[in-house]
Write a protein that binds this DNA or RNA. Sequence first.
RNA 1: GCAGGGGUGGUCGAGUGGUUAAUGGCACCGGGCUGUAAACCCGGCGGGUUCACACCCUACGUAGGUUCGAAUCCUACCCCCUGCA
Length: 411
Amino acid sequence: MSFSSTPTQTESEPTGAGVEALGWQVTAQEGEARSGILRTRRGVIETPVFMPVGTLGTVKGVRFEELEAEGLDARIILGNTYHLWLRPGVETISACGGLHRFIGWERALLTDSGGFQVWSLGALRKITEAGVEFRSHVDGRACFLSPEVSMEAQAALGSDIVMAFDECAPGKATHDAARASLELTARWAARSRARFDELQRAGADLGVTRRAEESGVEGRQALFGIVQGATHLDLRRESLARTMEIGFDGYAIGGLSVGEEKSVMYEVVEEVAPLLPAARPRYLMGVGTPEDLLECVARGVDMFDCVLPTRNGRTGQAFTSRGKLNVKNARWATDTRPLDEACACAVCRRHSRAYLRHLHVTGEMLAGVLLSHHNLAFFLDTMRRVRQAIRSGEFTRFRREFLEGINSGVE
RNA sequence: GCAGGGGUGGUCGAGUGGUUAAUGGCACCGGGCUGUAAACCCGGCGGGUUCACACCCUACGUAGGUUCGAAUCCUACCCCCUGCA
């Protein structure tokens, strides 16, 4: 296996199948905050954008009709290579026509490479230069994931944005550990790029290549590189340079919100985001809270994803314009107000805090469904308002008022 | 009426003379969750004073008794279940 297969190409000009995978245009900017239009082969995405997480081929508890409908109008969701690879298996999805067809979603899909699982599965894995040996968390069997395997899987899934296979260092990683991790990530990034390009040329991209006529979808997959380096700014800059040298369709900042102080996370984003190519979209992986979204948009990030709205929805927490609301609390037992009086989502229009608390306390599955819907509506609507604010030059004021609101506390 | 069995904290249910304010489960109360090993995890849960260490009070159907010491042993009573009349 070769570790020095960095393709020769112009800096920041991805090759692939010879077609631009993404169109990207910044349409408004205020300070570092920018609003733009990302054109994927499966639709237009206005940024800044929040991407709901659908790890296992489902945004947990939310029907695709709801994701598409006006209330949420999610333009792109995530899937996870590692999880789909284990179950149902990439071959299965491939046999069903690719991930879009398999799950019944025509809009854009971004697949995470499985790199994050390298970090989060902790003791179940062993990292080598070649890749990562995992013990499947499902049945314990030995598995092996590498840049090449991840690219092959993501090509077979046919996602529209493919993530390079990286290693995510813990937030508290020492300089030495973070450096080693970053260098491994850089080598893996080059391998990801090389294998990805081969696969595009070979027509392995199931998202379009084999079924272009019936899908009506044109264009190749996009590949994003990931900047690592933990909390060390010098390493972040180095990782950034090495990632840009390889060249990707977009750039992600990984390895944040993994145990470091929040102020440190903002500091890293503030340092890294503006150094990323302005002519490419910037994606902050796995972040974050509503406050994080605002703060990181302000620092130049275009794309976000996070499990918080759906996970916390299932575990009884609502995000509102006045901050977090713990649905479990006895104080809502007879409260007939909606979760968020400023929210126009379907759940807030119809149901009371008292009812949602009842559903959650009794373990009814509708509780998770409704709370996930509301939380996603809040996140997506917040981003919609962020875009409008940037376009109208009022982002600074919007940011201040929004943060005042969520810090005022639910009454 | 007779014979067995049984009455434990919000609830179910352990404990059958000595770290017992009393195991567990549930309920209840509170907290956490950031590229989803998560419809999950953690904590509290008789009352009172204290920031806290700690201390005091009240508790195992009721009332007595035995004992240094009782939810645990004895006596009486009340109530519940099962069987026989």
